[in-house]
């Protein structure tokens, strides 16, 4: 059971009374802003003409009476609501948008009514991909009661809590396994230099880096700077499984350098369907993050 599932059925906001009783000034403010000219909201005579005892508040305004306002006092959100919020924030679901409201009104509110609300979690969805970003739908039921504890309205309420797309922390590329034998190669890459290990005994070039020349057995070596030209020796296109650090489809290629050694790399600036074995490619640099730069290759442009 995840922590989210524990919230189903839980009361996250205990009954909380709205700060003000139903009153004409707040109704007027609402009706003006909404452009609602229904006279029963502001004039007792008009309301009585429809058989009501006096002014009634707009049904849609029910929720507004219990809104916490601009600077709610700490702790008034309900400890359950604060716990749920902390859990959502921890998972990066910092943004919120309301998606559904289903109101059933049991009676009209009249001036002087004191409206309270309590809120119970109905369900919390698994993570979903939405147009706004990855998030969870939180569905609650809010029960509105009056000063006598009688239910005046019930509202099923659904919010999407999501991680904004443009703020999603981009995952880092997996770290290369760097050791004393290959560190020089990655250090050169950080300086945008593609180097090839060269045997100091017989001059044979080799890659990937290693302590000993496979040709003559010498442990002495230095490096040569690669020209940055080569051709596609082989390649695959990865679609699945996806790692969040990479763009897909991802072209993973073995490039044979003009110098004769081969390295595993990515191809950029080319569609997977356009890649061909033997295709001439040139060196480019990928600065994946401040600690990692890697050589990649793009098709050689025709002169």
């Amino acid at each position: 059971m995840t922590a989210y599932e524990d919230f189903a059925g839980r009361e996250i906001v205990p009954p909380r009374e709205g700060p003000d009783p139903v009153n004409v000034p707040m109704i007027r403010h609402w009706a003006e802003a909404m452009g609602d000219r229904n006279p029963v909201y502001l004039h007792d005579d008009a309301a009585r003409a429809t058989g009501r005892p006096g002014i009634v508040a707009p049904a849609s305004m029910t929720q507004a009476w219990t809104m916490r306002g601009y600077a709610p006092a700490p702790g008034t959100g309900g400890t359950g609501a604060e716990e749920l919020n902390a859990l959502l924030e921890k998972d990066g679901f910092t943004s919120v948008v309301a998606t559904d409201s289903e109101f059933e009104f049991h009676r009209e509110l009249v001036v002087g009514d004191r409206v309270s609300v309590r809120e119970v979690v109905e369900s919390i969805s698994p993570e979903k991909s939405t147009a706004l970003g990855v998030g969870r739908f939180v569905t609650t039921v809010r029960t509105y009661t009056d000063q006598d504890g009688e239910v005046v309205a019930v509202q099923r309420w659904r919010l999407l809590r999501f991680r904004p797309e443009n703020q999603a922390p981009k995952a880092l590329r997996p770290r290369p396994a760097i050791n004393r034998d290959n560190a020089f190669w990655f250090e050169a890459a950080r300086e945008h230099r593609l180097v090839i290990q060269r045997c100091a005994g017989c001059g044979t070039l080799r890659h990937p880096p290693g302590p000993c020349c496979p040709h003559c057995g010498s442990f002495e070596w230095d490096t040569a700077e690669a020209s940055g030209r080569g051709q596609v020796y082989s390649f695959v296109v990865a679609h699945h499984p996806r790692h969040p650090a990479f763009e897909y489809p991802l072209i993973v290629a073995v490039v044979e350098l003009d110098e004769g050694t081969r390295l595993i790399t990515n191809l950029v600036g080319v569609e997977p369907g356009e890649v061909e074995i033997g295709m001439p490619v040139v060196l480019d640099w990928l600065d994946a993050d401040p600690d990692l730069s890697l050589p990649v290759f793009r098709p050689q442009e025709n002169d």
Partner: peptide, 16 residues
């Protein structure tokens, strides 16, 4: 506005 001032709203169910 269409129904008139005597209408009593019983439910509003919306999806955004």
């Amino acid at each position: 506005e269409w129904a008139g001032p005597a209408a009593v709203v019983k439910a509003i169910r919306i999806r955004l």
